[in-house]
């Protein structure tokens, strides 16, 4: 008895090669695909846009270099938007390497905004372990949790923090999060306990899990999801950053993957018919 013939499997290395070329070419020769701005990204923009000037925001860098591609463009775009609106930024990190990510983002944006001064317009309070407990404790007294900045300047000597005691003096919280601890803990502790407005951005993998928090309870004021969220924000503040340039490659890769799925299904369908 002969076994039914099935298609010879394609060497997957061809697929990797096609995908590599498909991603590399649009980076070298941009195609200029337009990216529509979603409502959830627009909400983040509106939160910052509609907050009065000189307000203080808490920006939490809850990621490390592994998610640099997705979250660092968001950090740069949000800092730039906040500086344009003259908001003061208190940077913290629930992930140890978030401190360096914050420094790099500020360093990049300061080239455009050299008049912004450390300690007056922004401050980096560094890494704090503890996750949700730390966020809860900041609701009682931020100074107890973050007694010094990354340059070892005591809390009370930093001009920006002169009138900051707890979340009551914070207009909104932005968390850029690659996992736990991060945005979820800010929703749970900062918003649901202390009612401070919370927004942020996550890696694309985590995005579907956060969308239910954007509801009429306002647990989350909008969300930037992955590279696309970052590109949308860049387009809203009219800046062409790395996220915007990466979206052409992203679109081509998605088209290729859809084609591969369709081709795979056609082959599977043919094999099934041959077996029958």
């Amino acid at each position: 008895m002969s076994t039914p013939k099935t298609s010879k499997p394609i060497d997957r290395r061809y697929i990797f090669l096609i995908l590599l070329i498909g991603v590399a070419l649009p980076l070298i020769f941009p195609l200029g695909f337009k990216s529509e701005v979603s409502d959830i990204s627009r909400q983040v923009y509106q939160l910052i846009e509609n907050t009065p000037e000189n307000s203080i925001m808490l920006m939490s860098f809850d990621y490390d270099p592994a998610t640099n591609t997705e979250l660092q463009p968001m950090a740069k775009a949000i800092i730039e938007h906040a500086f344009r609106r003259n908001h003061k930024i208190i940077a913290v990190a629930l992930w140890p390497q978030g401190v360096q990510m914050a420094d790099q983002a500020f360093e990049y944006i300061l080239e455009k905004y050299p008049d912004k001064k450390y300690g007056i317009d922004y401050v980096n309070m560094g890494f704090k372990t503890g996750g949700m407990v730390t966020i809860q404790a900041m609701g009682r007294n931020i100074k107890d949790v973050l007694p010094k900045d990354t340059k070892n300047t005591p809390f009370e000597e930093i001009e920006l923090l002169r009138n900051v005691r707890n979340y009551k003096q914070i207009a909104y919280v932005i968390s850029l999060s690659a996992g736990d601890p991060g945005l979820k803990q800010y929703v749970m502790a900062a918003h649901d306990m202390y009612k401070v407005k919370v927004s942020g951005g996550t890696t694309a993998v985590s995005t579907p899990g956060f969308i239910p928090y954007i509801n009429d309870q306002n647990q989350l004021y909008g969300l930037l999801g992955g590279l696309k969220g970052a590109a949308e924000y860049e387009s809203m503040i009219k800046v062409k950053g790395t996220a915007t340039s990466g979206m052409d490659a992203q679109s081509v890769a998605h088209i290729l993957i859809i084609l591969f799925i369709v081709m795979g299904n056609i082959r599977a369908f043919k094999d099934k018919n041959q077996k029958a």
Partner: peptide, 18 residues
């Protein structure tokens, strides 16, 4: 979204290399 995240990682590395 997971596919998008993985492709983003590839884009990040290619942006670094290129």
């Amino acid at each position: 979204y997971t596919v998008m995240a993985r492709i983003s990682l590839l884009i990040g590395r290619l942006q670094f290399l290129l």
